[in-house]
Design a protein around this nucleic acid. Structure first.
Lengths: 110, 110
DNA sequence: GAACTAGTACGACGAAAGTTGTACTAAGAC
DNA sequence: GTCTTAGTACAACTTTCGTCGTACTAGTTC
């Protein structure tokens, strides 16, 4: 009676559940902000390992989880990789202009 | 040889010294965000005690200091009161659109 | 002068956050 | 099957953060 194995999944907050303070907190960490800018520049999905972060895998997992739980990135499995993409439309609809201004400000090494 | 007592002063970061992550962190606390929105709505200077925050004076001092050191508010003494005003022009010039979008998003209880 | 008001400084405490190592799982390559 | 790759889970540790109480300072009022 072994059931069909469910595909691996992760939970994401709905757009209505996004909290401004949580988003700001998630983006207030330099490492996470760099992840988001890289993701925005790429315009596509990127695996966690594509970022070459100067921290261990554990820490990397932690930061991606913070971004996911804040509703900033959406993650899905593809093979052994976990692909990340920016929830730009969701963020733009709930917090108009916020991501744009942050990305613009982050671009000029502030 | 008692010298003339210096007027009380506080240090503020220059516009060039503002850091995006520090600003985002300062605004990621609900209490501090409410201070900033109140200040923005008032359009003028407000003393610390004008906010009726649900915390002690010590904690209040702490939060105003975080905002000041992040470059979000400018403080000056007026009698025994410490007046606070938003550094809107400075913020707008360094991080265009950031404060506007945050204030707009904070307005609708997110 | 004394009393009061507004806020600061400092130390303490608990909670949260960032980092890590070890052990583990799932998918792919062989 | 084994081996490798990519990432997770969990416990531990360290640092930071938010909060407070007590003691203090500066200015105002009397």
């Amino acid at each position: 009676m072994s059931a069909e194995p469910l595909p691996r999944q992760v939970g994401h907050p709905l757009s209505e559940e996004l909290r401004l303070t949580e988003v700001l907190h998630a983006l207030s960490d330099p490492l996470r902000l760099s992840i988001v800018t890289t993701l925005a520049e790429s315009g596509t999905e990127l695996s966690c390992s594509a970022f070459h972060l100067p921290v261990t895998k554990s820490t990397s997992t932690h930061h991606f989880r913070v971004l996911r739980e804040a509703g900033i990135v959406r993650q899905r499995y593809e093979g052994t990789a976990r692909m990340n993409r920016l929830r730009r439309e969701d963020l733009d609809s709930v917090f108009p202009g916020l991501l744009t201004s942050i990305l613009a400000s982050a671009g000029q090494d502030n």
